[in-house]
Amino acid sequence: MKRYIAHRLLQGVLLLCLVASIVFFVGRLTGNPADLMLPEDVSAEDRAALIQVLGLDGPLHEQFFIFVRNALHGDLGMSIRMRQPAVEAFFSRLPNTLAIIPWAILLAMAVGIPLGVVAALHRGGWIDRMAGAIAVLGVAIPSFWLGILLIFVFSVQLGWLPSGRMGGPSHYVLPVITLGTFLIAGFMRLVRSSMLEVMDSEYIKLARIKGLRESVVIWKHGLRNALIPVLTLWGVFVGNLITGAIVTETIFAWPGIGRLTYEAVIFRDFPLLQAVIILKSILILSINLLVDILYAYVDPRIRLA
């Protein structure tokens, strides 16, 4: 188990180096980043000054060396717009995103998993088709449209819930629904297909031979096995959510890292964008590692291998 974790850590570090290099070189490939940040009618001196401040005047390999060295010291540059270190900006916003993501996953699981189980148990019947339709709807509806629709109905028309910004529990409802809906289908489909396979297995037959109640057979013996493949994809789902948070946070004026990404783009805050991409990669990689460890815990065959 320890060797497995060490192996995964090493993999993660290599992947991260790759991401960082790509971010760096793609950034330079598209021209001098200074030009992206400056208005078109800037004077030559101002431009030269900025280039020097940003360390963009040396040869490329030297710039990369400086970038790596700074990164290793936790310095991913200054945000131009916010005049604060990009890393600081990221971490001050991160808790706000982490405050909605678990709820969104919980919502998606709470709806998607039972829907998948019920669909599997009624394979081919109308319940299965209904569940499939709900799931497809969840994917097909774009987040921005759903978000705006929810705001229109529940904030503007009914006035029940706030339309944006952080605040008490009521502020969470609409962003969480918008973010979570998108994942319902993922959970539902996975659970359905793995549940179908599991319920045909011999150990389910033995559970029934023992005379166990059907609910125990399904929700204990069946689901616990059916959830193993779901868990392996959990990391992917969280990754999806972190990406999906860009749209949701923008619509609901939610001050998280999704909205920070959006701001970095529209305000051409190049160092910030670079930092956000790298830090999000670290975040997603750590979550995946965590999930793999959890997976090993749930499936004894891996734990003891």
């Binding site: 297995s201 011999e202 150990y203 037959k205 033995l206 031979i209 499936d299 065959r301």
Partner: peptide, 14 residues
């Protein structure tokens, strides 16, 4: 009661 044929798949792995 019934004892099944294949011992490899008859017990719940988890």
């Amino acid at each position: 009661s019934m004892a099944l044929q294949d011992p490899q798949t008859s017990l719940n792995p988890v």
